[in-house]
Design a binder for these strands. Structure first.
Lengths: 132, 132
DNA sequence: ATAATTGCAAATTTTTTGCAGGTTC
DNA sequence: GAACCTGCAAAAAATTTGCAATTAT
């Protein structure tokens, strides 16, 4: 159970019941798109879609959330965490996290003076469940 | 100058003037979103936005194009080519390609029986021009 | 107290779709 | 000639926005 109230204040945002519910639901689900999130959230507290959009944008802007753009799927959101890859199953749409070492990875790449702030490694394929 | 007519037929699609213009414009621009592409394309041949959407979807489905979903930007399209990373400048939105070796990269990752079809490495940061 | 946040509703923007007429092979 | 494509127009879906009321600090 994360202390989202403190996290919000540390990022200069007010702690509201809506934001806490949003964050805890995203945390519980790992990755989730706005449509699924809305379904989960309205079972707990009333949040119109417009407010949800606004909240996700703000929470991403301050860095509490990370948005993940995925080919073929709607944007997903997750609680920001150290760099990890996303394995996206093209069959069922599930997303699996795996750790990787960003600096090892970048060693082999000629960045041509590009100044890296963050990396995102994504793989598409078939997950274990769907392979069967 | 690529032979897009042949490429289209090899992928089981008919060669039409619209598709050739679309492909050559994407080719010339490297990466482009639908809005910018439409501006370029209508200077050459009349293509309604709806048709452009349909064309991009079809061309991506058969594999001639690759869609690139990018946080904060609209989906970009490029002519499909061997795996390469995209360096996205958060200042100016420019996208730069760099080569990388996908298998080297995956060696260090525990894929947990996930069957990889494609990988996509993206980095956000500041490009040389914007760093100035 | 006051500045931030939410709810609501409407406006915008983005994307998809049906179908008639044209085009490619 | 048949199957495939395109143009058009309308619909559907996704996202943003303005503002008054409410809430957190």
């Amino acid at each position: 159970m994360m202390d989202f109230e403190s996290i919000l204040r540390e990022h200069g945002l007010k702690s509201t019941p809506q934001r806490s519910v949003i964050l805890s639901q995203i945390y519980d689900s790992g990755h989730i798109d706005i449509e699924q999130l809305h379904k989960r959230v309205i079972g707990i507290i009333k949040i119109p879609l417009g407010t949800l959009y606004r909240a996700l944008t703000e929470l991403s802007t301050v860095g509490i959330l990370t948005a993940i753009s995925i080919n073929g799927l709607k944007t997903h959101y997750e609680i920001s965490k150290p760099s990890h890859a996303h394995l996206v199953c093209d069959e069922c749409g599930s997303i699996c996290d795996v750790e990787y070492n960003a600096s090892n990875l970048l060693e082999n790449i000629d960045l041509r003076s590009f100044q890296i702030k963050s990396t995102m490694l994504m793989a598409h394929g078939v997950c274990v469940k769907c392979k069967r």
